[in-house]
Computed example of a mutant assay.
Amino acid sequence: MGDKVTSDARVPLTSVVSGQLLQLLRDEGLAEGDSIPPTGELAERFGVSRTVIRESLAELTGRGLIRRQQGREGVVALPGGDHLSSLFETRVSYDGISFEQLHDVREVLEVGAARIAARHAQLPDIARLSDLLHAMRTATDDKQMLAVDLEFHRAIASAANPLFGLILDGLSPLLMKSRLAVWQSYLAHGGDLEAAITRHTALRDRIAAQDEDGAAAAMRDDLQDTRQGLAGIE
């Protein structure tokens, strides 16, 4: 049996146990999809009631760190972009953040990510970008093409740093709304798909050439076109 858990009066016992449960899962090397120990075993190990354990597990489930499955105590989970999406969409709606402000974040994140991707990208990353360029050309409608466009940018961010990819993944639903609005303005002001693909091809080529400055400039050019499109819909 482990040491009995005690709680400071200012911190609920459930929260203390949640933190120690999370540490236990890490210490035991449990990976995503692995089953967690039974409730009774955890209650004995921490010297608390089963109710406290169940409440702590519910808290970790709400944070996306445990996933409940029928017939199992639960399995380890890793929070992903969907958890960030919920957070971002709530705050954007509550704070009245505009598409232009969202684009400010893209510029800071993606220009830097393009530079780092040129430093770190491997052949599979370049192949992925090439596949996505082909998918952009063969998309059957604007929505499908723009979804591939976002995936292209996520692939660059992930090649640079997994955290960049995670953040961009979380922003993707908001970015899709922005891109759908901007695309019509882009077309109305003389833009076309071929020009967009040319910009993305240049971006892929600069990353493949390990040209950090060139990749950053190519990303900046692509995002500047979006910036102009935003101005056209305001």
Rank of each mutant, 00 (worst) to 15 (best):
G2M: 03
T6C: 05
S7A: 15
R10S: 15
S15I: 09
V17H: 03
G19H: 07
G19W: 02
Q20M: 09
L22W: 03
R26E: 13
G29E: 04
A31N: 09
E32R: 05
E32S: 07
E32T: 10
D34W: 03
D34G: 06
E44V: 04
E44Q: 14
R45S: 07
R45Y: 07
G47F: 00
T51Q: 11
I53V: 13
R54S: 12
L57N: 02
L60Y: 00
G62R: 11
G62P: 01
I66W: 00
R67C: 06
Q70S: 14
Q70L: 07
R72W: 01
V75S: 03
P79Q: 04
G81R: 03
G81T: 02
H83D: 09
H83A: 09
S86N: 06
L87Y: 10
L87C: 03
L87V: 11
F88W: 07
T90Y: 09
T90M: 04
S93E: 12
D95V: 00
Q101A: 12
H103Q: 13
V105S: 13
R106F: 11
L109Q: 12
V111S: 02
G112E: 09
R115P: 00
R115M: 08
I116G: 00
A117V: 02
A118G: 15
R119F: 08
A121P: 01
L123P: 05
D125K: 05
A127Q: 10
R128Q: 15
S130C: 05
S130A: 14
D131Q: 13
D131R: 05
L133P: 09
H134V: 15
A135L: 09
M136H: 09
T138H: 14
T138N: 10
T140W: 08
T140M: 09
M145W: 05
L146E: 09
L146S: 13
L146D: 12
D149G: 01
L150Y: 01
F152L: 07
I156R: 00
A157Y: 00
A157I: 00
S158N: 04
S158M: 02
N161E: 07
F164A: 13
F164Q: 04
F164I: 03
G170R: 04
L175A: 15
M176F: 11
K177I: 06
A181T: 10
V182D: 01
V182I: 10
Q184E: 14
S185P: 00
S185K: 06
Y186D: 12
Y186C: 04
Y186I: 07
Y186Q: 05
A188V: 04
H189I: 08
G190V: 06
G190P: 07
D192K: 08
L193C: 08
L193D: 10
E194H: 11
A195Q: 14
A196M: 12
R199K: 15
R199D: 15
R199S: 15
H200P: 04
H200I: 05
L203E: 10
D205C: 06
R206S: 15
I207V: 11
A208C: 05
A208N: 11
A209I: 02
A209K: 02
E212T: 12
E212W: 02
G214Y: 08
A216E: 13
A217I: 06
A217Y: 06
M219K: 14
R220F: 04
Q228D: 11
Q228H: 13
Q228C: 07
G229C: 04
G232C: 06
